[in-house]
Design a protein around this nucleic acid. Structure first.
Lengths: 209, 209
DNA sequence: GACATATGTCACCAGTCGTTGACAAGTTCC
DNA sequence: GGAACTTGTCAACGACTGGTGACATATGTC
């Protein structure tokens, strides 16, 4: 009743602050879904949870996106670019890779790179049968294909897949299992980075002999 | 009624073919749970499913193991050895690593190495909050600690963690995302193996410079 | 055979889930 | 002002889940 009164009195008339604004509501739901799917499993994230955190009625989620599965699929897509890693070169891949570790979990919400958020979504819901097919397609079409096209030499697909495997394994270790063998002395951290570079090079670089 | 008649007539008297046999029932439940948890998520495996596949009443699962969480924890433990990889040296780790890829999904059931089955259980239920803590403890105590103790030189924990990260990432690629860039020509397969060896060496071997 | 115990069976609970349909309230256009 | 449409609200459905207690049946012991 308070909101209706506020609406009638129209103290904030020109700003469509997401009241009766379909696209804003959709985006709010999508943002909340991304945040939750990046933290927990596909099955452990409920539509009511997503809606509640977005300040939206749970029914609207199904109505705007059709189903939870479709919402999850939408979550993995970018609004501006069409790919998770559009134009991903070896350098950008390495950069995302590094960011995956430099980012703290207590980073300011909404500030984390959207690429990283989507990788976390990928990782958390691997193993869910319903999300599995969606993830498979997204990984193949939005990561492996673009990255392998950026590579040169032989075994491009293989090298891209192995690099992604390394990235996923490290991401799981750090973000999901919370196993941090680094983050100790600066010397250890430097050695970790050096070793990481070598692993990544062994996966990605063309073989020279 | 048929089974009871059979029991009364005692055509097979000395063999307690798991009728009124607590330990056999427990093992049957545990085996079924391992099989299911190795294929699907923690949340997507129901106690009724486990019980049904084991030919057991669903109520017995809760009664024998207390809770689904405790059953999952038991699933990650070995009956004979106490560790997932007891006495795991660098060679055995590499062997498990190789097996993870050589094994086919259509392998005869019950024939797959129990170590591999447990790694698959680990991988599938990563991302499940309830299983996460259990998995974290199992990984730390049963994999990272023994492996790092087997290593020599500096940064033992770091190297073990990075090797496990590589193993997990590759396992996810192959067994869960079904992304097989190998398995083409024998030449490609050989190059894959060579590259894999280099990656693993970069993660595990002590740095020489 | 009678009892005590171990093992298995059954019905059911409380809760959550995704989804849907009926209805209310706001917006736009005539 | 009223019709047509959009957007949001509410309550409920059916299906599922993990878990529990009452009861039935078998086994072992005297």
């Amino acid at each position: 009743m308070f909101t209706t009164m506020l609406g009638k009195m129209s103290m904030i008339p020109p700003v469509p602050s997401r009241h009766r604004n379909a696209v804003a509501t959709r985006q709010a739901i999508l943002a909340s879904a991304r945040k939750h799917f990046a933290r927990e499993n596909y099955e452990n994230v409920g539509l009511r949870e997503i809606a509640g955190h977005a300040g939206v009625d749970p029914a609207l989620v199904s109505r705007y996106f059709g189903s939870k599965e479709a919402l999850f699929r939408e979550t993995l897509r970018d609004d501006d670019e069409k790919d998770i890693m559009d134009g991903a070169t070896r350098e950008t891949l390495a950069r995302h890779f590094a960011q995956l570790f430099l980012e703290k979990d207590d980073a300011p919400p909404g500030e984390r790179d959207i690429h990283i958020e989507r990788i976390l979504i990928l990782l958390h819901s691997i193993g869910s049968p319903k999300a599995g097919q969606i993830i498979h397609n997204a990984v193949q079409a939005d990561i492996l294909d673009p990255v392998s096209q950026e590579l040169e030499g032989e075994d491009r697909e293989m090298r891209a897949a192995m690099a992604l495997a390394v990235l996923m394994g490290m991401g799981i270790m750090h973000n999901m299992l919370s196993i941090d063998t680094l983050e100790c002395t600066p010397e250890e951290d430097a050695r970790f980075e050096k070793r990481l570079t070598r692993i990544f090079a062994a996966a990605l670089e063309p073989m020279d002999d």
